[in-house]
Nucleic acid binder design. Structure first.
Lengths: 171, 171
DNA sequence: ACTATTTGATATGACCAATAACGATTATCG
DNA sequence: CGATAATCGTTATTGGTCATATCAAATAGT
């Protein structure tokens, strides 16, 4: 993609507001055209904002959205191997290795060689990992999702979630 | 982020469906846990799908979502400079250079040194660029957005767009 | 005039996505 | 059994995007 996370758009050039005449007549706001009707564009924009807020809310725990989702999934499905966890998150197995290295290096989870199949690793959280995850969940609920509820309202938030799930599933 | 575009998630391991007993009792679906309630997660997932479809719909014209948005913006705001266009799209100026190089190389737009300010380039579409843009808009309307309407329904699509705009604006 | 700022551009680094390939292990099946 | 194929985690590598610092040229401010 291309839409940046920090190059805040529509900064609107507050410099030279209300010009005292004499200029090519434009110099005003830039017209978005049918861009405002493009679902994909708004989708991307909203996603970047939401992720940004998520990261800010998690700053004290230093967890990215992806890391959070991995911890969550391992906690809910202890003993699954890397391929299974990576696949359900849409992460390719090669790229999942470094990610697990990081989490395991922080002692949030462990790889345990499976007894049945000595090729695979059974993944599970450490006590520390469960503690961090619990704190992370609280932060998400009280800071992140709470803010979403403020902006959207509970009903809209639920409706939005439903539509997004529909898109991710049936599109 | 981390969610991949092609590592299709929830492939669900159709191998070994309906096992004839005798297994560690799990081996079934992986539990998503509160991940299904995480707005950011669904947002990302949906965004990747929509962009993927956009790219497929545009395959004949070879336009990415970002390139399409640039052409659209230049068409609606001819004569603006690179900084202005890049900023409103959330693209950083350095990263916008190669993008314009590509579009200009395909003769879809041109940079014209400004007479007033000889530092800046006035951007405008070529005739070819306008032609491509017109065809692109048709493809988006008849293939891409039409499909979104099918899956969501017109009312839901409008509501979704509104909520996403709200998020991108007020969040 | 002198300094500061702006514009487009270059170079570079960090990170993510994607593919191919490898060693170790397990499954298949003739 | 034994050969072949498939799977698991891993490494290496490539291409793409995002971000920062910096530059020369041009302009603005004083």
């Amino acid at each position: 993609m291309t839409v940046s996370r920090t190059a805040d758009p529509n900064v609107s050039k507050p410099a030279k507001v209300a010009r005292d005449m004499a200029e090519p007549e434009d110099a005003g706001q830039i017209r978005m055209g049918e861009l405002s009707e493009l679902l994909g564009y708004s989708l991307k924009r909203a996603q970047l904002r939401v992720f940004d807020d998520f990261i800010r809310c998690m700053a004290s725990l230093n967890l990215t959205p992806a890391q959070f989702s991995v911890l969550l999934l391992i906690d809910r499905n202890p003993g699954r191997n890397q391929t299974e966890i990576a696949n359900t998150l849409g992460i390719l197995r090669p790229n999942f290795v470094a990610m697990l290295d990081s989490l395991e290096g922080r002692e949030l989870c462990v790889r345990v060689r499976s007894a049945n199949d000595r090729r695979s690793h059974n993944l599970m959280l450490t006590d520390k990992g469960r503690g961090i995850l619990a704190r992370a969940k609280k932060l998400v609920a009280t800071k992140h999702e709470a803010r979403l509820n403020e902006v959207l309202g509970p009903a809209n938030r639920a409706a939005l979630l439903d539509m997004l799930a529909t898109l991710a599933r049936d599109f």
